[in-house]
Simulated assay, not measured.
Amino acid sequence: MIKLRDIQKSFGDLKVLKGIDLEIHEKEIVSIVGPSGSGKTTLLQIMGTLDKPDQGSIEIKGKKIDGLKDKELAIFRNQEIGFIFQFHQLLPEFTAVENIMMPALIGGLSKSKAQDRAMELLDLLGLKERAEHKPNELSGGEKQRVAVARALINDPAVVLADEPSGSLDTQNKEELHQLFFDLRDQLGQTFVIVTHDEKLAQLTDRTIHLIDGQLNDK
C-alpha cells in the first residue's frame, strides 16, 4: 500500500530523516513511535504528500508520487489520503456535518451526495444527533470523531493520524483507539498512526520505532 525508499529530509543543517526504507501493507494498522524530535511527524507528512523529501521515492497504492505536479498531487491527496490531527482542526463556524463534507466538496462531489455520505459516517460513529452542532458545542471525544469522519468522507485508501488521542481523556482515548480497528474491519482502510501512547502502540498490528531520523527495529 505504501512504499518508501531512502527517504531523506533536512531543515537547514539539521538532518531529520536519514534514509528511511519502509513498506506498509493494505489494511494494516501501524504505529510510529519515538522520542520528540525523532522525525515522526516529518515522516508522516512526507507519507501524506504534505511535504517533499530531499531524496528518495514514495509509492502509494501502486502510484509513484515523486514527480507529480502540485495539482496532480492535491487531487491524489484528496482522493486517497485522510488526515486526523491531535487537535481535530475543525472549522469553528461550520457544523459537524459541514466540516465532514469539506473534502468531498473539494473533490467535486455534489452537495447533496456529500451531505448524505457525511450523515452515513456520523451515524456509523454514533453522532447522527450531533450533525448540526458546531465544534464549540461538542465534547473533545465528539470533535475527534467528527475529524475521523472527515478523514473518511472520500473513502481514502490510507488514513494518517498524528497523535490523534493526545488531547483526550482516558475513556475517550480508549474509544478512539477501538474505533480505528472497527473502521479497518468495516471499511478496509490502512492506518498509520504517530503516537506517544504506549497502549495504542501495543494494540497496533506493527510498531515502527524511529530514533534520530532512522528506523530502529526492536
Score class of each variant (00 low, 15 high):
E120T: 05
T49R: 07
D66S: 12
D182V: 13
L203N: 13
D66E: 14
I29K: 05
I46V: 10
L122P: 00
R5H: 07
G19F: 09
I81R: 01
F87S: 14
N136H: 15
S36E: 05
I84P: 00
F85S: 01
L105T: 01
E174Q: 11
L176P: 00
Q214W: 14
M101V: 08
E163Q: 11
A157S: 15
P35F: 13
S112E: 10
S10Y: 08
N136R: 15
Q8A: 13
L4M: 01
E163M: 09
H25R: 15
S167D: 11
G166Q: 01
E198V: 15
S38Q: 12
D217Y: 14
L4W: 00
L43M: 13
D51Y: 11
F181A: 10
R130N: 06
G56K: 03
F11Q: 09
Q86I: 08
E72H: 10
Q214M: 15
G67A: 02
A114V: 00
I81N: 01
L90G: 00
I58D: 03
D217H: 15
Q89K: 14
I46S: 06
R5E: 09
P103W: 02
T207Q: 14
E175S: 13
F83H: 04
D169Y: 11
G56S: 06
D212C: 05
V30R: 04
Q45C: 15
E163K: 06
K113I: 12
T190D: 10
K18F: 04
E175T: 13
I32G: 03
D21S: 07
I208C: 01
L124R: 05
V194Q: 07
I46K: 07
T49I: 08
M119D: 05
S110G: 15
G166A: 00
K3Y: 11
K143Y: 04
G37E: 11
D205L: 11
S165M: 08
F180M: 02
F11P: 08
S57G: 13
D212G: 04
G67E: 01
E23W: 05
G56H: 06
D116H: 04
Q144M: 03
A151T: 03
K27A: 11
Q79S: 12
K128P: 08
V16H: 04
D185Y: 09
L43K: 11
R117K: 01
D217P: 15
L122G: 00
